[in-house]
Design a protein around this nucleic acid. Structure first.
Lengths: 349, 349
DNA sequence: CTGAAGAATGTGTGCGCTAACAATTCGATC
DNA sequence: GATCGAATTGTTAGCGCACACATTCTTCAG
């Protein structure tokens, strides 16, 4: 007596008095099953507590209901949120997701992650790939696995979902300009990131559009508060600066701190605007005016795009060679870290 | 001519001039394969770019090399880090991880997540389950799938890995007491979380051990800065308070902000200590003295524990019924948000 | 040189399921 | 009531691999 092995399809079939194929049909929502038969099968399924074997299913059908997510450092707020959004959406569509984190977004790591995921027979992959190198690498992956990039800028050759970084940066910069600042300085994110590049471009565009002088931006090596702090010390020492747009909120936090330590008041002496609207931004000192991007939504949209691709592999590859880009507009969240500049004290010329 | 179907084991076998079984042996590192044969097989594998089919492997062996992670809100810093640590460690052990995020940690959601993962044939599950209800639910899952809980307190019936919350809280509280504060107030985390409960207990123990009065703690509804801020306004209004230990850094951030708005200086008027040491903590205003827990390491350790369980299912279940708990000691990171209390101004009695 | 132990390899089978096709049943039509 | 077509169900083959076992090849003691 083997007894309590997990029930298989044949067991269900026996109990329901049908063939295993009919059971399969019921389970896969095939048409042409008489309602009464369906009922009997479902009853048997319940009675036995039968659960289909995913491996057998994949083996036979050559399809899985699992999706892969490649992510760089899921520890950052943005990626973490997107991952969350993706998982949620996947669940709604009855997909499960397996993640492959990569330490660095270089060509090799990314390709390796793709391989690991393909070994799992994932039906498709979402890449949270904000760096230039990663996007380049992605062009090399065989086309047999649908791929969607998220948060990777809008200029890639892939199906992509991204927030409109340039628009967001323009929003922030124009806001500061409208407040009366002669110009706006910019604390750039790491330039290897598309987001950083695009935000810088948006900032520059906004300045030029208004004929405002374009100061040399200072570029950070990473997105951390530490880096923001280091650059902040320099910025604090420059009396010309009255407004700074930071490429993200962490950078802004570091900047805020440096400014405060240098005795420069925000927003009275210097206005600061960030980017991301992380949950803590509201509680910085002072609360941070920033550009909000809806990471969650980004993740969800990316997943939806992927599912469409999975269902119809050609959807992403129109004859023209162009790929659809979904762009989500960011919005400005006004809080208290930016205000009108003080009237300039006339300096003797 | 089918041509370019992905190569299968039989193809490799043919090229190498051996049987498919020998190929299997080579691929699975079985003993008793002559080195030269192994070489030939590996060469064939390379030549063909052969990649084993995971589904077939699972089906035939009834084992997978994928692990499940159940996590509540991977958006929080802690869970996100642990997830990252887990994924890293899993990769090192050649496991892949699929995640199941749950919106709430109630019994039903957790059990559902377990089911979803079991449907994937995961070899084992790590639960990032910091809430009481979750741990309770976990007791109900069939023992056929190894389970490790992480960051779930140290008092569960499961194999678990956790930071020593009580010790951490004592560390923080004693530090403040040593600084000369008459007592230490506590901003408790949501009480449905084990971590919150344990930190509160540690705080209380430290106070009692020193014979310090134990003020009524204020309990937050969640871990957010917003909540910290709300409680902070009340705390700011209480002139008796000279030191506050917050159950985590986010709460501390909110508190800091409320204090600042109320015109109370930190640390001169009030000392604040947090818990977690999130990356931003150093850049709060002022930089936050806090209890550091190594989430990454927590994740890694959890995974290692799980792998041991997977290898030897009985390892976690000694006859006594006791389960091994791995406890990681936290450490105090001293920065500038806490200092000695000002000499009390003699108030007329 | 023989034989046995053990190393190295091959053969057959089934994991649990889906897909193609075959067979049956059911209705409705003439 | 015979006939045809569609709806419904069953049958037969694998999917690609690992496991149990059978077989062959080595090696070395006697």
């Amino acid at each position: 007596m083997d007894g309590d092995r997990a029930p298989v399809m044949a067991d269900v079939a026996r109990i329901a008095g049908v063939s295993h194929q009919t059971v399969s049909r019921v389970l896969n929502d095939h048409p042409n099953v008489r309602p009464r038969t369906r009922e009997r099968v479902l009853a048997a399924v319940r009675e036995l507590g039968y659960r289909p074997n995913a491996a057998a299913r994949t083996l036979a059908s050559r399809r899985t209901r699992t999706l892969g997510v490649i992510s760089f450092n899921t520890t950052l707020y943005g990626p973490a949120c997107m991952l969350y959004g993706i998982e949620q959406a996947a669940r709604e569509h009855e997909y499960s997701v397996t993640v492959a984190a990569v330490g660095t977004l270089d060509r090799y790591s990314v390709l390796d992650a793709v391989d690991r995921l393909r070994d799992q027979n994932v039906a498709g992959i979402v890449v949270i790939a904000p760096q230039t190198a990663a996007v380049g690498a992605l062009a090399n992956v065989p086309a047999d696995v649908p791929l969607v990039a998220v948060g990777c800028g809008t200029h890639t050759a892939l199906v992509s979902v991204a927030v409109d970084n340039e628009a967001g940066a323009e929003l922030a910069t124009s806001y500061l300009l409208d407040l009366g600042h002669r110009t706006v300085h910019h604390l750039v994110g790491p330039r290897s990131w598309l987001d950083a590049q695009e935000r810088e471009a948006g900032w520059r565009a906004a300045l030029e559009k208004r004929g405002a002088p374009v100061p040399d931006p200072s570029a950070g090596a990473d997105w951390t508060a530490r880096t923001g702090y280091e650059h902040g010390r320099r910025i604090a020492a420059d009396p010309e600066v009255t407004a700074v747009f930071c490429a993200n909120d962490h950078l802004a936090l570091g900047l805020l701190r440096a400014l405060q330590q240098a005795g420069r008041r925000v927003p009275e002496d210097i206005s600061v605007v960030g980017f991301d609207d992380m949950p803590e931004a509201e509680y910085f000192g002072p609360s941070l005016t920033t550009v909000r991007q809806d990471f969650d939504e980004l993740g969800r949209r990316a997943l939806r795009a992927l599912i469409e691709l999975v269902g119809d592999p050609d959807a992403g590859i129109p004859a023209s060679g162009e790929r659809p880009h979904i762009v989500i507009p960011p919005s400005l969240v006004v809080r208290t870290s930016a205000t009108r500049p003080r009237p300039r004290t006339e300096s003797p010329t």
